[in-house]
Computed example of a mutant assay.
Amino acid sequence: MKAHTKETQSTMTPDKALQFLKEGNVRFQNNLKANRNLLEQVNDTSEGQFPFATILSCIDSRVSAELVFDQGLGDIFSVRIAGNFVNEDILGSMEFASKLAGTKLIVVLGHTSCGAIKGACDDAKLGNLTKLIAKIKPAVEAVKEPQEASLRNSKNLAFVDEVSHMNVNLTIKRIHDESPVLSEMEQNGEIKIIGAMYDVNTGAVEFYEA
């Protein structure tokens, strides 16, 4: 399988990009890989890149977007930060990826048993991590159940995963609210912005499609 070219990118649609990721995740779950020569892809992309998707994911070592979606060099832009939230720098990167570099799909990828989410649930304090966790706290507050304080912490994995899901949704809302560029592109059908959750136990990705 060769790297994407300007021609293949030009025929890509948001729905087709999503299908590519779904098919890649199925291969990953079945321990299969597309037949690709990575060194050949290095040569193919030496003078330019034409990715079809942008994926915002956590820095968690188990959640490499290239691996879980079985993609090669030049296929996706991968943005990683603990807790997969956005700030102006990440929004700017997404705008570059979509408006200038031509990707058709933005995926906000959360995952189960997320350490950053657990830290936010426990209101952890540690250097600069304290400020990072503060950006995830709105997702904790937005999950209303359970109300009992003793169940609203990292020991309750169901609560942690619900907060992760909420964090994905709130991140997408922020993209819409804070990036007129991306919102307009989505309204025009040029791109799609969706959420997803990776299960660290199974390797499966569940997409949250409207």
Score class of each variant (00 low, 15 high):
residue 1 M to Q: 07
residue 3 A to W: 00
residue 4 H to M: 09
residue 8 T to K: 03
residue 12 M to D: 07
residue 15 D to C: 01
residue 15 D to L: 15
residue 17 A to P: 05
residue 19 Q to N: 12
residue 25 N to Y: 11
residue 27 R to V: 02
residue 27 R to T: 04
residue 27 R to E: 02
residue 30 N to T: 11
residue 32 L to M: 12
residue 32 L to V: 11
residue 33 K to P: 00
residue 35 N to M: 13
residue 35 N to K: 14
residue 35 N to H: 07
residue 43 N to L: 08
residue 44 D to P: 06
residue 46 S to P: 13
residue 48 G to F: 04
residue 49 Q to Y: 05
residue 52 F to I: 04
residue 52 F to C: 04
residue 54 T to K: 11
residue 57 S to E: 07
residue 58 C to S: 06
residue 59 I to H: 05
residue 62 R to L: 02
residue 66 E to W: 09
residue 68 V to I: 15
residue 69 F to K: 00
residue 72 G to C: 03
residue 78 S to L: 13
residue 81 I to C: 05
residue 85 F to A: 12
residue 86 V to A: 06
residue 86 V to W: 00
residue 86 V to Q: 10
residue 88 E to W: 03
residue 90 I to W: 04
residue 92 G to T: 09
residue 97 A to G: 09
residue 97 A to S: 15
residue 97 A to H: 10
residue 103 T to V: 15
residue 104 K to N: 12
residue 106 I to A: 09
residue 110 G to S: 10
residue 112 T to V: 08
residue 113 S to F: 13
residue 117 I to D: 04
residue 118 K to N: 08
residue 119 G to V: 04
residue 120 A to R: 06
residue 125 K to N: 11
residue 132 L to F: 03
residue 133 I to C: 02
residue 135 K to H: 12
residue 138 P to C: 06
residue 139 A to K: 08
residue 140 V to Y: 09
residue 141 E to P: 00
residue 141 E to V: 03
residue 142 A to D: 09
residue 146 P to G: 12
residue 155 K to Y: 05
residue 157 L to A: 12
residue 159 F to T: 03
residue 160 V to A: 06
residue 163 V to Q: 05
residue 170 L to N: 04
residue 175 I to D: 15
residue 175 I to E: 14
residue 176 H to K: 15
residue 176 H to C: 01
residue 176 H to A: 11
residue 181 V to D: 06
residue 181 V to C: 10
residue 182 L to R: 03
residue 184 E to H: 12
residue 185 M to A: 11
residue 187 Q to S: 13
residue 188 N to Q: 15
residue 188 N to Y: 05
residue 189 G to Y: 03
residue 190 E to T: 12
residue 190 E to M: 06
residue 191 I to P: 04
residue 194 I to R: 06
residue 203 G to A: 10
residue 203 G to C: 05
residue 205 V to M: 11
residue 207 F to V: 02
residue 208 Y to T: 00
residue 208 Y to E: 03
residue 208 Y to M: 14
residue 210 A to N: 15
